Amino acid sequence: TFVALYDYESRTETDLSFKKGERLQIVNNTEGDWWLAHSLTTGQTGYIPSNYVAP
C-alpha cells in the first residue's frame, strides 16, 4: 500500500480524490505518471498522480 503525501482533488471523472495520509492500494502502475489506485479509506477506485504518494 501507498500513503498520500498531499490532498488531491479529482479533475476528471476517472481521477480519484484523496486526502493526505490516506492509504491507497495500487491496482496498475504501468500508465506512466498516473496510476490506477483503490482507496482503502473510501473504497473508490480511480487514477492518481504517482508523485502524490509514497510507499
Rank of each mutant, 00 (worst) to 15 (best):
T1M: 13
T1F: 15
T1I: 15
T1W: 15
F2L: 07
V3F: 09
A4K: 00
A4L: 04
L5E: 04
L5A: 03
L5D: 02
Y6L: 09
Y6T: 06
Y6K: 09
Y6C: 08
Y6E: 07
D7Q: 04
E9Q: 12
R11K: 14
R11W: 08
T12E: 09
T12Q: 12
E13W: 07
T14G: 15
T14S: 13
D15N: 11
D15G: 15
L16T: 04
S17I: 04
F18N: 00
K19G: 05
K19R: 11
K20C: 07
K20H: 05
G21I: 01
G21Y: 06
G21S: 03
G21K: 01
G21P: 01
E22Y: 02
E22V: 01
R23E: 15
R23V: 15
R23Y: 15
L24F: 15
L24R: 00
L24M: 08
L24T: 00
L24P: 01
I26P: 07
V27M: 14
V27E: 08
V27T: 08
V27H: 08
V27D: 07
V27K: 08
N28A: 12
N29M: 15
N29H: 11
N29L: 13
N29E: 09
N29A: 14
T30K: 12
E31M: 15
E31T: 14
E31L: 14
E31Q: 14
G32Q: 13
G32N: 13
D33H: 13
D33Q: 12
D33R: 11
W34N: 06
W34D: 04
W34F: 12
W35T: 04
W35C: 04
W35M: 06
W35D: 00
W35Y: 08
L36A: 03
L36P: 01
L36H: 05
A37K: 00
A37S: 03
A37M: 11
H38L: 15
S39P: 00
S39I: 04
S39N: 14
S39V: 03
L40W: 08
T41H: 10
T41F: 09
T41M: 11
T41K: 13
T42V: 02
G43Q: 06
G43P: 00
G43N: 09
Q44K: 15
Q44A: 11
Q44H: 11
Q44E: 10
T45H: 07
T45P: 01
Y47T: 05
Y47W: 15
Y47N: 05
I48Q: 00
P49M: 07
P49D: 06
S50R: 11
S50Y: 09
S50L: 04
S50H: 08
N51A: 14
N51I: 10
N51E: 11
N51W: 15
Y52L: 12
Y52Q: 05
Y52F: 12
Y52C: 07
Y52G: 06
V53C: 03
V53H: 03
V53S: 02
A54Y: 10
P55I: 11
P55C: 07
